[in-house]
Nucleic acid binder design. Structure first.
Lengths: 219, 219
DNA sequence: ATTGCTTATGACCATATAGTCATTTAGAAG
DNA sequence: CTTCTAAATGACTATATGGTCATAAGCAAT
């Protein structure tokens, strides 16, 4: 499973939703991927407004006329990459849900964190896109109805918290939704640091996260 | 002390730095404030690229020619509002540093949080600007050298953490900088919720914050 | 070679918008 | 009233950019 290559079935689905044209679907995989990769990079670096269709065409090696035969408009291009990413996230979460053998909530959170770090490596060159997506979802001019990337992620964290409360590992006097929100926030913040200038040792950060979250800062 | 009105001395300073013209400084306070308020609102709602100078002029009741006699360019307008906000933040932090009588770190954090909530009320109509500022500082196309709003805030949180470690109230095996970062993140996240649709009871949220931070989520 | 369908192309259009400038207006001083 | 300086104005320019369209190219089938 790779976030950086397009799935035929997904594209067929997006054609049905009117996000991309059938012409796009019929293109060679190479050309489709070129457009996708360039779009991700440029959105990540320049944001929605900042991405110029002309530049994208030049970098992807297609003409402007072709672009608008693939996508009804620029906002559809954003919708396209967001939905592809969304699909990837969903599959990724399903996978880690299945694979996890750990029972304890703290182990599951560790696993989640590790998996995220691995993902951040996967997005090496496109790491800004990850940040762009979440911030775009919150306060972008272009709202894409029915999609909330944060939600996938937060749902899963909540799931862990809730389970921990049930098994008695996590205190029950906390609101699951709120705690899930804060925990997701912290995890995201640490990942953001991995992306940033400050490179941290993965193992230590993970232990830090767990200790901070579970034991608190009290002496 | 109010974030929404301009200080004469600060403006004189900004003239020296070339951020605004002397012509702007000599305007009536009313006119200056109109431009400032409209700029804050429009930047907050539409972001840097989204703010159209034409619209700003119309809403502030000035002509476009005048605008460019006040500010060398649009980016200087952003620099202007950011620096005014920065100055406000610095004075606000100095004030709460002086006023706090509490000794314990948890009391200081409570106080900080309360103060922030009060501030968020102050910014009622311009709350989006608050969010814009922090996100703009992180990944805006326009970088304003030497300014980091987050820094002020995080410095203060770190100060509290460090003090708590010294007095033995906060465990000493944590990295002050990292813990400060995470604590600031959580506080910001809670404030963001206050801004958002989910209106929370202030007192409860505050207790939640402290309990979450100090005691952790372990049962 | 011809036909017919699909894809590619880039000049062109409409619009938005940052920034300019010659001219006008306001107000103070003499 | 005249003069001088500072401030206001909006038409205008230059440029960027999303989107269109008529035409060309590719290619398969007959």
């Amino acid at each position: 499973m790779n976030a950086l290559f397009l799935d035929e079935n997904l594209i067929a689905q997006l054609v049905r939703r009117g996000v991309v044209s059938d012409t796009f679907r019929r293109l060679t995989p190479d050309k489709k991927n070129r457009v996708y990769r360039v779009a991700i990079r440029l959105f990540g670096v320049y944001g929605y407004d900042g991405l110029a269709v002309d530049q994208l065409c030049k970098e992807a090696g297609i003409s402007k006329g072709s672009f608008f035969q693939y996508f009804p408009s620029k906002s559809h291009l954003l919708e396209f990459v967001v939905l592809v990413f969304d699909d990837y996230l969903a599959r990724w979460l399903a996978e880690i849900r299945q694979n996890e053998k750990a029972v304890l909530a703290r182990d599951r959170l560790s696993y989640l964190y590790q998996s995220l770090v691995v993902n951040s490596r996967l997005f090496k060159d496109d790491e800004r896109f990850f940040l762009f997506i979440t911030s775009a979802m919150n306060h972008s001019a272009v709202t894409i109805e029915g999609i909330d990337l944060e939600h996938h992620f937060r749902d899963y964290v909540e799931e862990i918290i809730e389970r921990g409360e049930r098994t008695g590992e996590i205190r029950g006097d906390f609101d699951v939704e709120m705690t899930g929100y804060l925990a997701a926030l912290i995890i995201e913040g640490l990942i953001r640091r991995q992306y940033g200038d400050r490179k941290l040792a993965q193992r230590e950060t993970e232990e830090y996260l767990i200790s901070f979250l579970f034991d608190g800062i009290k002496a």
